[in-house]
Design a protein around this nucleic acid. Structure first.
Lengths: 236, 236
DNA sequence: CTCAAAACGAGAATATAATTGCCAACACTT
DNA sequence: AAGTGTTGGCAATTATATTCTCGTTTTGAG
């Protein structure tokens, strides 16, 4: 069982990543003094575990692998695994963080391609929908199969909403900024950007779940549908 | 593990319930000949199991009870439990069906209270949102805590979407009818009622999940927000 | 270069639940 | 009242996650 309290305390990496690439140089140097080598070694092993897990997820299309399989594939040991991760869920959580990071980059790129605030918001929404939707079918580039990860995030939404909120925060922030910009531009009128952002997120991110229910492809919700629905829904 | 193929074959009750209360009288009589007593006995036990499970869910606020606890509470045996349910998931599925049945009745009542097509649609949407939202907090009447059940349905959406779609079907059908009526009335214009229904369902049913993410109550999505968002979103 | 401490690998040991198997006692039908 | 199917009690099995033990190896200080 992973205790919530342990988390930030004993894992510097987590904090560092959550804040972005920038780590105060002084701290870096200080810690580096005796930990540099040890850390890079540990980092390599952790990466090995993550890669193995991603590989298993990719080929199986599910998160139902065993820890044993992960350590076998990465040529490590159970002992070692539990040295780095408190539990299997912590591993999945790490994979989720990685995926979100990728998503944010991707979304940022899509947004930068546009200049008008409303177009930027539109680009974000559509890309977000596609990102979640990209059902294992036509996986993009070298990126990983995100469906099992999305499913895990779903379970996390149920079991530990605060934590999920924390990982998707960067994404939510980006969305809120885009909204505010669109409002400032006069292209949109919303009173509570926070609430509007929730509605957009919900519509774009959970559409894929609903789409699973329908047999008739004509009734599926496309990224375009999503955007139009949101745009009109937010009121002119 | 519950095989999908087993389902309809060996469980007459399931089929009967899925079709509604009406069972051809002749068949009833024919089967009754030798099964009546046995069935009512079995039904009593099954009900006992369901009640025990509901009770456990109500007091714990989660579906994380063990089968052992269910049988202890209903004064039955593991052996007996597995005579009626192929697995724990089958039990949860039964509870979900019960809840949906309740929901449909409730929604139907709310809808009947209105006469204008658009008002009926509105009543449905808002009631649906409230039904899902009614987070364990202020549980309605004698009804059960639906949050853990909603969570289970979520997992089902991931693991077995067709099956979830099947239980929700009555609800979806009702919504589509209301939509068509509103369109016929000229109060609304949508090309694909199926898709529109999906969007409404999604917005109303998953809002509660999103609301869990937000700390600031002012940003929470209310039933009213949901309705307005949907109404405008569907265009006009 | 050498040693104590820390990290590691292999694999056994635990723990928790779900699911089954087994057998004697019971209940209801005929 | 015998026969057949149902039950209770409970041990056995299975599947995994998680922890523990014990030698081995690696690392970093001196």
């Amino acid at each position: 069982m992973a205790r919530r309290e342990d988390r930030q305390a004993d894992d510097p990496k987590q904090g560092e990543l959550a804040e972005g690439e920038k780590v105060p140089a002084w701290r870096q140097r200080a810690v580096a003094k005796s930990l540099n080598a040890a850390r890079s070694r540990a980092e390599k092993r952790i990466q090995g575990l993550l890669d193995a897990a991603f590989a298993l997820i990719d080929e199986r299309g599910t998160t139902e692998f065993t820890i044993q399989e992960v350590v076998d594939r990465s040529k490590q040991s159970l002992r070692g695994f539990y040295q780095y991760f408190d539990s299997k869920d912590e591993l999945l959580f790490a994979l989720l963080e990685e995926s979100i990071r990728e998503a944010v980059e991707d979304l940022a790129a899509a947004v930068e391609a546009e200049s008008k605030p409303l177009d930027r918001l539109r680009a974000f929404t559509i890309r977000l929908h596609e990102w979640c939707e990209s059902l294992g079918t036509q996986r993009v580039r070298g990126s990983h199969n995100r469906v099992p990860i999305s499913e895990f995030s779903m379970q996390l939404a149920i079991k530990d909403p605060e934590r999920l909120a924390a990982v998707i925060a960067p994404l939510s922030r980006m969305l809120i900024e885009l909204l505010k910009a669109a409002v400032a531009d006069g292209a949109l009128q919303v009173d509570e950007p926070g609430r509007a952002a929730l509605l957009i997120q919900q519509t774009a991110m959970y559409g894929w779940l609903m789409n699973r229910f329908v047999q008739n492809p004509a009734s599926r919700i496309t990224a375009e549908d999503t955007w139009e629905f949101c745009l009109r829904g937010l009121g002119r």
